[in-house]
């Protein structure tokens, strides 16, 4: 399933070109009134990309499924929200605390859960997600319960308050690009190769001396940390949180982003996040039938291109090359 890996220098060039593209995008959107709000949509694309990148590492490279990513997303959001509003701490402290808490949770849950396989692992992570969701709803004194809480302060960067959409756009995409770079580095490193070995055959991987449990837990922790980072950024952008955005359906949506984009490709996770976030906007003109069209498009992608958008893209490129020669 995994894609052939490009040279390392090539990766840096790709990220650089992608960063340039992202940097000019708001100015392109700004040309027309009809597309000016796409900058807001792109903020959510970045947030979704960060959490999808984490799951892509786990699912695409280590072959471990998780239906509990929304829990990490929520942990990040609530940690940031509570620490900044109740204790008046800096959002940066909130973000770090959220990531640390998610790392601890991922370690604690991952150690027993990642010994499970297939459906059992899916069930375990699903249960974890539901427990965290219940905590958000029931620990009213801490989380505000079902009504949530607001007035989460914006992030300050070198004394500059980042509260405009454009400012936040550049901040959140900087994070998304750093996450992309880290993820691609993990893939190219020794742990990344170990993960792909586990993905293909756990027995063979163990045979060549890979500590399977450790490798799996490590990558689960990374995916949790990315999820928490995305959640914290969400909290500081929307400035209000309540439990619904962190429910099981969001976990499934993240899984869809990874699958639609292309399992086994970090770039695919970004593509999938972009498609699933933008598609409802493009289909809005269908009014009551938009949900139907949304379902049909996703179904068609999975049916006709099981390796997702990245697979579709590389096949189209291949055809074009064949025509040339």
């Amino acid at each position: 399933m995994t894609m052939p890996l490009p040279e390392k220098n090539q990766t840096v060039t790709h990220i650089f070109l992608f960063a340039l593209f992202v940097a000019v995008l708001p100015w392109v959107f700004g040309l027309s009134r009809a597309t000016s709000y796409y900058t807001d949509v792109m903020v959510f694309v970045a947030i979704h990309s960060i959490i999808a990148a984490g799951l892509s590492l786990l699912l695409g490279y280590a072959g471990q499924i998780s239906l509990g990513q929304a829990a990490f997303y929520g942990v990040g959001a609530y940690a940031s929200g509570i620490l900044t509003t109740r204790l008046g701490l800096s959002p940066w402290v909130g973000i770090m605390a959220g990531m640390a808490l998610a790392a601890g949770l991922a370690y604690g849950v991952g150690l027993p859960a990642l010994r499970l396989k297939g459906h059992y692992l899916a069930m375990a992570t699903l249960g974890f997600g539901m427990i965290v969701y219940i905590v958000f709803n029931e620990f009213i004194g801490l989380t505000g319960g079902p009504s949530g809480f607001g007035e989460i302060p914006p992030i300050h960067f070198f004394g500059m308050e980042i509260s405009s959409t454009l400012g936040f756009y550049y901040l959140v995409w900087t994070f998304a690009l750093v996450v992309l770079w880290i993820s691609l580095n993990i893939v190219h490193s020794r742990p990344g190769r170990a993960l792909r070995a586990i993905h293909d055959s756990e027995k063979a991987a163990a045979g060549v001396g890979i500590d399977i449990t450790r490798a799996k837990v490590q990558i689960f922790v990374v995916s949790g940390v990315f999820g928490a980072l995305a959640g914290s950024l969400y909290a500081h952008f929307v400035t209000f949180i309540n439990p619904p955005p962190f429910d099981i359906f969001f976990s499934i949506k993240v899984l869809m982003m990874v699958v639609i984009g292309g399992i086994g490709s970090i770039w695919g996770a970004y593509l999938g996040a972009a498609l699933l976030t933008f598609l409802p906007e493009w289909l809005a003109f269908l009014e009551d039938f938009d949900v139907l069209a949304y379902g049909i498009i996703l179904l068609a992608i999975v049916m006709f291109s099981p390796d997702g958008l990245v697979g579709l893209g590389s096949r189209v490129m291949g055809r074009i090359r064949n025509i040339k020669y």
């Binding site: 709000y37 807001d40 949509v41 929307v238 309540n242 619904p244 955005p245």
Partner: peptide
């Protein structure tokens, strides 16, 4: 009833 969708839709109403 989804906060993310509502935020985007509100921006769309205001900006577009």
């Amino acid at each position: 009833a989804n906060a993310t969708k509502t935020v985007v839709a509100a921006k769309k109403l205001i900006n577009r």
